[in-house]
Design a protein around this nucleic acid. Structure first.
Length: 583
RNA sequence: GCCCCGGUAGCUCAGGGGAUAGAGCAUCCGCCUCCUAAGCGGAGGGUCGCAGGUUCGAAUCCUGCCCGGGGCACCA
């Protein structure tokens, strides 16, 4: 509908030959009005053309209106304010929208905006060193909803979780598991102060001993021989690294890998299960380790070397990131020969491009912002366009219980897990609360509010509108009536009161909301819209009975009801929130 | 010091060049013999952090400053 109005304006301007030659012709810029008194759509074209043409805005607006082609969709056009041109849609147009909603169902609101565009959406990608916490939950909800919005607007979306299954943190998890295992079998060794001390580590250790018996047991003496002091006397980093190499030594590389993988698989299974239960799924879990085994990292470094973007300094190999807008050059191979995380990351991103994706869309924590410039630099240095990488940062989450901060118990150092949150407030509330705020806004997540079944809670408010329609349809059957869709659509002109009119107007806006939310990567736009839609419905519900004796009027009202239910359901589905039939 | 995000109603936040700046909660006043009151209507409440600038027009764009959060590794 919006594009229809745009076309009309465009034609009028062309007919008037208003666009000064050589000038950059301003787009029509047609927008929804904020105020119903200004009609449905407005354009500021006359205001913007007034100066270059040296004419008065209002006079210009009149001329444009006179040149507008006739349209059955538009009932009224007028000049308003300083020179806006306001369009009011005809009743025919809004009635046609209702028919379209009923016809297209879940497809209503979908578009081909992103047709042909292949997007690789990477999100969550939390290190598999422990269960997901509430911060990851926000990433999951935001990323999943973004994926849905992009799909709905015609993009081809591939969802990927990058699994950090290599590296030091994972080694620390491995030795933490091993030590819990030893402890369980009576070897009294201590967990490093830097080790992972969550309960899940003990559980993995139990599985380990159940599966392997005493195969990995060593004596306390052998374990402690030659180890430096842990904190507070010694350095905790040095200590934990020493324990890792001790483990490698005592167990041998194969057995160490066995313990390591046991920890990795257990945590990863837990994460997969957690996300799956949260309605968040991925097309691929991409192993970081595979970058090494497949030679992807070496290939990427070779490519950089061939392009003379690497140099050696003080034993380390550096990438000339500063040539590509980064603050400084970055190390890709350390003095000790180990490739940095950055090396695998640019290799990974380059590999994504190799798989044919136009856009690499990363959802990262706000603390990763310093990272964007260097990954982009890496891509550019390998010959990729810098704008093929888009990063959306997600700010932190703070939990509240009522007015009190409930973040984490600092003593155990354990964060509240996503699973605990889901169990406490439910998936629906969690999904909606997570995306209710702009991603670059800190999120205060109030557990009490999310749990309350009251009108304070936006989840119930929106779902309730859906359930109410279902309930009405139920009542209809009980009274021995049936909804005749065709008759209802034919009688829509009977819905002249302001409440159903407002509802129709809001329903017609849905496709634009989806586009806006997708383009701006802003799911909260959809949440706010659904709240407004639910409000329009509740208002109407309170103002008029639907199940009236007059069959024509009844069918008309029910048609609008069902259309509203459809859009609420579609919107909630995109958000990953259920649309219950009764509450 | 440099970089990113935020500062809008008492609180939590939308809006991110246009018309009288919005919503929810909180406060106050109303509405169930009627399809779910998990609902609806109304009222009060704002120098859009501060100061300049660009523009016909700035909460929105630019510059500077103030306040809050985060980031600036041969860690992952």
């Amino acid at each position: 509908m919006k594009s229809h109005v745009e076309n009309l304006v465009h034609q009028a301007i062309a007919d008037l030959a208003l666009v000064a030659s050589g000038d950059d012709s301003p787009d029509p810029q047609v927008e929804r009005t904020r105020d119903a008194r200004h009609g449905d759509f407005t354009t500021n074209i006359a205001l913007r053309l007034a100066k270059p043409l040296g004419r008065k805005p209002r006079e210009l607006a009149e001329a444009i209106i006179a040149a507008l082609p006739a349209s059955s969709q538009i009932s009224h056009v007028e000049v308003a304010g300083p020179g806006f041109i306001n369009f009011t849609l005809s009743d025919l147009a809004s009635r046609a929208q209702i028919a379209e909603i009923l016809e297209r169902g879940h497809a209503y609101g979908c578009s081909e905006l992103g047709a042909g565009k292949r997007v690789l959406l990477e999100f969550v990608s939390a290190n598999p060193t422990g269960p997901l916490h509430v911060g990851h939950g926000r990433h999951a909800a935001y990323g999943a909803t973004l994926g849905n919005l992009l799909s709905a607007t015609g993009h081809e979306v591939h969802r990927e979780y990058y699994v950090n299954d290599a590296g030091r943190q994972m080694e620390i998890l491995a030795i933490s598991v091993w030590i819990r295992y030893l402890q369980a079998l009576g070897v009294e060794v201590a967990l490093p102060s830097n080790g992972y001390r969550g309960e899940y580590v003990r559980e993995i250790a139990e599985t380990l001993s159940a599966a392997y018996g005493e195969r990995f047991v060593v004596s306390k003496e052998a374990f402690e021989t030659g180890l430096p002091a842990d904190a507070p006397e010694g350095d905790k980093e040095t200590y934990v690294d020493a324990v890792v190499s001790q483990a490698r030594q005592l167990l041998g590389e194969d057995d160490f890998r066995e313990v390591f993988d046991q920890g990795l698989d257990a945590v990863l299974d837990d994460i997969r299960d957690d996300l799956e239960s949260f309605g968040v799924s991925f097309d691929r879990w991409y192993s970081e380790r595979s970058l090494t085994t497949q030679g992807t990292i070496d290939a990427a470094l070779q490519r950089l070397r061939a392009r003379e973007r690497l140099y050696v300094n003080e034993g380390a190999t550096w990438f000339r990131a500063s040539d590509y807008g980064d603050e400084k050059d970055r190390v890709v191979i350390r003095e000790n020969g180990v490739k940095t995380y950055f090396a695998s990351d640019i290799a990974y991103h380059h590999e994504k491009r190799g798989r044919g994706y136009d856009l690499l869309l990363d959802v990262l924590g706000a603390d990763h912002h310093g990272y964007i410039a260097r990954v982009r630099a890496g891509l550019e240095a390998m010959g990729e366009p810098g704008d093929c990488l888009e990063v959306r940062l997600v700010q932190f989450v703070t939990l509240y219980r009522g007015g009190e901060k409930a973040q984490m118990s600092t003593r155990s150092g354990e964060f509240v897990t996503l699973r605990q949150l889901r169990e406490e407030v439910g998936n629906d509330a969690a999904r909606l609360f997570y995306v209710m705020r702009s991603n670059d806004q800190h999120l205060d997540f109030d557990l009490e509010l999310a749990k309350s079944s009251s009108n304070d809670n936006p989840v119930y408010y929106i779902q309730y509108a859906h359930a109410r329609v279902c309930s009405v349809m139920h009542q209809l059957e009980e009274r021995g009536w049936h909804w005749d869709q065709a008759a209802g659509l034919a009688a829509l002109e009977l819905l002249v009161e302001p409440q159903p009119q407002a509802l129709m107007r809001t329903l017609a806006r849905y496709p634009e909301v989806i586009e806006l939310a997708a383009v701006n990567r802003a799911p909260q736009t959809l949440v706010f819209y659904l709240r407004e839609l639910a409000n329009d419905f509740h208002t109407w519900y309170n103002a008029q009975p639907f199940l009236v004796d007059d069959a024509g009027l009844r069918n008309a009202r029910l048609s609008l009801c069902v259309a509203a239910r459809q859009v609420i359901c579609s919107g909630l589905t995109l958000l990953g929130v259920s649309a219950p039939e009764r509450m």
